[in-house]
Design a protein around this nucleic acid. Sequence first.
DNA 1: TTGTATGCGTTATCAG
DNA 2: CTGATAACGCATACAA
Lengths: 349, 349
Amino acid sequence: MKIRIVDIAKKAEVSAGTVDRFIHQRGKVSNKAAEKIQKAVKELGYEPDILARNLALKKELKIICLLPDPKETKYWERPDAGINKAIKELSSFKLAIEKIYFAPRVDAFNGACKIAIDSKADGVIYVPMFFNESGIFAEKLKTLNIPYIHINIHHSEATPLSFIGQNAFGAGKLAASLCQMALREKHEVLITYISKEQQEYSHHHARIEGFINYFENKKFVQPVIHHLNLKIDTNNRSYEKQLIGFLKEHPNTSTIYVPNSRAFRIASILQKSNITNIMLIGFDTLDENIQFLKEGVIDILIGQQSKSQGYNAVMLMFNAIFRKEKIADINYLPIDVLNCQNIDYYEGL
Amino acid sequence: MKIRIVDIAKKAEVSAGTVDRFIHQRGKVSNKAAEKIQKAVKELGYEPDILARNLALKKELKIICLLPDPKETKYWERPDAGINKAIKELSSFKLAIEKIYFAPRVDAFNGACKIAIDSKADGVIYVPMFFNESGIFAEKLKTLNIPYIHINIHHSEATPLSFIGQNAFGAGKLAASLCQMALREKHEVLITYISKEQQEYSHHHARIEGFINYFENKKFVQPVIHHLNLKIDTNNRSYEKQLIGFLKEHPNTSTIYVPNSRAFRIASILQKSNITNIMLIGFDTLDENIQFLKEGVIDILIGQQSKSQGYNAVMLMFNAIFRKEKIADINYLPIDVLNCQNIDYYEGL
DNA sequence: TTGTATGCGTTATCAG
DNA sequence: CTGATAACGCATACAA
């Protein structure tokens, strides 16, 4: 038998209205009423009927999602899709879920933050892409008493309601362990990535550190590890020549590890130059990456369930502010290993 | 603006009751009323409010889940946990979700089927563990017009509303591809598994076939592949001696592939005998398997998101019979690669 | 500070 | 065959 508000009202010898006020801390309730109600709630074990609540609700709660524009950085297409899935699933509820895209630059980020603040949200989900600015935004939200959730990038100083993403250091270690599995006697490893933004992201570093750490702690055959930073904004694809040049100088290179999501660019160079004896490990299931994975140019992709990042963030926020549940402050997602054999079954691609 | 039943009733110039009868095909509706309603529904774009429906609903829908007793076969603990999660999540709805466990024997399975039939379910989720009996059960359900979903094991003849599980052949191919990554010049592969049941399961065979198929289709270094079937019911752990004996005879064995979930038993033997130079690949994240994975005795486990199998099955059935949505007839889950580096992040273990 | 009445969108019942 | 109406459990506005 389900316990309703009227049941505990009867038991506490007050009216339903008073019970409601007590439960939701709205309006004033006398001490003796409060005590009786509290007792009744405990004894009968009241659980609010969230569906009935939603039906009766007048105003809707607003959740704002701030994320980099998928048009600018392809990675964000999948978290965006996850958010859309959550929106659809929660469409029956009196909930307004709004998305704000920002270009991956500090000024755009700040502008988006301002819009979010102005629109009086009941909860904010955002990607703390720029360390300082994200911290300031977090402070502002805290002052306004608006709960916020971080996705994808872990911010070491802000204290969001929850973080949803991958343990980047762990992901790097995993990549290294796979690399180790395939290593032969002589080998050199190249860590390289092509970056567009000026910004260097902490999770990319963590992926590199985890990778290196794995070998440091093991008594395996120790690879020689090289680093090569390629800037996409240097003029006219000079990074292609840089990479080819490096490989000529280091013919023992057996593995290339790309800690950001642009392995497909490296793959493209290898393919053009007909280099086939190098194992290429990258991150994230962008369409381009998947294409090269299927063609065998990329050997392994590390996945971070990007779609789930968006989906879970919205769901967690919903549970937190609508159902008023406590939610875990860290939600690490699985670190997925994808090759051409299992990519077709991944994340409903 | 949300379109309600009364809105289309007004537009169609009939009462809400008639609209309801038409939409749910309950009772009789005159032709002209039906036409007008249909037109109004199309023009206004009516979407039922599932939350309000649930509130008004009198009788609850019953979903029955038939699965092997987790106490008998440890694998089923996780699908069982997934079902529990779904039950909790759907607790606000007028839904009765019941579980029936059966011992992994034909007679027990048949008994469970009978109970399921007798209890007048609105939907049945079951594991088609025994081919013939599962087919008969499926027929019976079809006759009674009760929708059913299969989980974990694909039944080639029955036509369930949906199948949820892994592509076993694909999983075998994946295992082989990982094996290939690690292979050195000389190598032999042993495929072996310890079975308790008399029954041989089709998905175990598919895992073996996929494994072998991978090598057949590639121009890689071809391993010599051996098979060794070990019965757990042969007296007094004689299978241990059999395995050790095999390895003595075939010192080039570099890999052992265990297509069922009992890799931990093989691991235990290897550990006891101090054999460390063999790569061991198994299936499923049973606690025992995870233990050996972390100790480095098992190198790789193929995961099939067993928890999600249970969870998704219930959710799909809910969507099908409660929201009356169409659901996909095949739901392949990801084929996960787990080693000691990423196991801690898997399925919220 | 408290009690009561009304409505949310649907289902189900009952009288026409 | 059809229309009217009382629930369902909760939120909210208003009266006391």
